[in-house]
Design a protein around this nucleic acid. Structure first.
Lengths: 121, 121
DNA sequence: TATGGAAATGAAAATCATTTTCATTTCTGC
DNA sequence: GCAGAAATGAAAATGATTTTCATTTCCATA
């Protein structure tokens, strides 16, 4: 009994990586698709219930969604100009798994970000 | 220039573990202390800026605060109950430094968090 | 093909933590 | 004592999310 609108999932795919409900909504609007914000919220929630997407919280409290199992990467963000470079997770992946295991955590994901000043700034 | 009301820190200590701004506020009310919600928010924010307390997000989006040990650490957060365990950074520290160096970034910091379901959930 | 109920939809209102505004009070140094 | 700075808090604003509810779309079956 999927209550999820397929176009929402589609948009999330197109977005690549994380997107908030509001972002998905605006993406769809810009793409000329007619949909209500309520439906976007309901669909994302349903996708999360079905374990099709991961839910996280951004620092500002907004919920962000991502397709599960997506190859993920991390970001190197410049505090000056805001530029973000995608970088591989490397050692983090193992660290996360080890730490989680050590404390008996299941169904584990992680987020990591490096910030600093880039060469130009 | 501390903008933090000492009674707020005091209450957070008494609370033990995590407490949200609203919870701290109600605790103080119940204790007969006169304080405004605004001041509670400002004080907790200031304590967080000064790295005296840790800030996390509960699943419902509410921010929760806890006195933190001085060592640099990361968090293992349960998606179910919101419990957070402090864990050492380990490999991450080096990873962050390496990645930053590789791209010529200076003045580098990082954030990382692992989330999953704890044994109880 | 009609029909009746279930599910989906979305606009608008409600909720709720947090932030902002701004007038007032409390501190400080002189 | 006094001026200016900092702290305070009530009330309004903000913004994401949820709820309400009337309407529309589906779909199985008569």
């Amino acid at each position: 009994m999927s209550r999820s609108n397929p176009r929402v999932l589609n948009t999330l795919e197109r977005a690549g990586g994380f997107a908030s409900a509001q972002e998905v909504y605006h993406l769809m609007q810009r793409a000329g698709e007619s949909i209500g914000l309520t439906t976007v919220y309901r669909s994302l929630q349903s996708l999360a219930d079905d374990k099709i997407v991961d839910v996280l919280r951004r620092d500002d409290g907004e919920s962000i969604y991502r397709l599960c199992g997506d190859a993920h990467h991390h970001h190197l963000v410049c505090k000056g100009c805001g530029d973000a470079i995608e970088i591989p997770g490397g050692a983090i992946e193992k660290w996360a798994r080890t730490m989680a295991e050590e404390h008996g955590f299941r169904d584990v994901g992680h987020s990591a970000e490096i910030y600093g000043l880039c060469q130009k700034c």
